[in-house]
Amino acid sequence: MKRKPAAPVSAVRLPRVRRVMAVNDDTQVDTTDPSRLSRSAEFTTFMHAYQDMVFSTAARLTGNDAQAEDLAQETFLKAYEHFDMLRTSPSPGGWLKTVATNLTLNHLSRYRKRWRFFSEMKRESAEDDEADTAFPDALLGVSTPDDLFASVHAEERHRLVEDALKRLPDHQRVPLVLYHFEDMPYQDIAARLGVSLPKIKTDIMRARIALAKMLGEARVRDGIEG
């Protein structure tokens, strides 16, 4: 199932140009140049159309909202540099998503190299040996999201899933998000992350199990089962 793409910028009705566009307490866009003002207003509309998508991409990959906001800002600054091309592009959303994904993966790669010694001292093989690969008992008989969240309000359901995603370790969450949200095939994920194909498949499989367990636990804890 493919998600409905965000509306192209050309389809979004542009607001009337404001006389003064305050962007924060101490910075204002130059309003003396009408073309620049119009461009800023158009870009603001463009941002409104795509900011949730860009932020979601970065937030789900990093699992950290503050880092995701920085990365979303960086993505939109790049978009501003290429705005003349993007405003006429038929798929600016695809461009933004690719840039956001690449910036986030580069950020994670730098971060991982910096902190590898501190945070990943455990041998991967040992970790793999210990991992429990059984289907979670709490989810036996559950085959659809409606079975899983029968009596949970949609907003609460979405919050539970986002929280569970955040709690996954990076090496499981990143390939899982790339596979299920970004539609990347296993081979591309392995190549992009510089990890072997079997390891990627194992990580995604374990991420699904871990996610299912967390959702199953939440289901039991919140009394959804009964």
Partner: peptide, 13 residues
């Protein structure tokens, strides 16, 4: 999609 923080737009601009 996750809702972007309100501060994002002002930061970018």
């Amino acid at each position: 999609p996750r809702r972007a923080p309100r501060t994002l737009e002002s930061r970018v601009m």
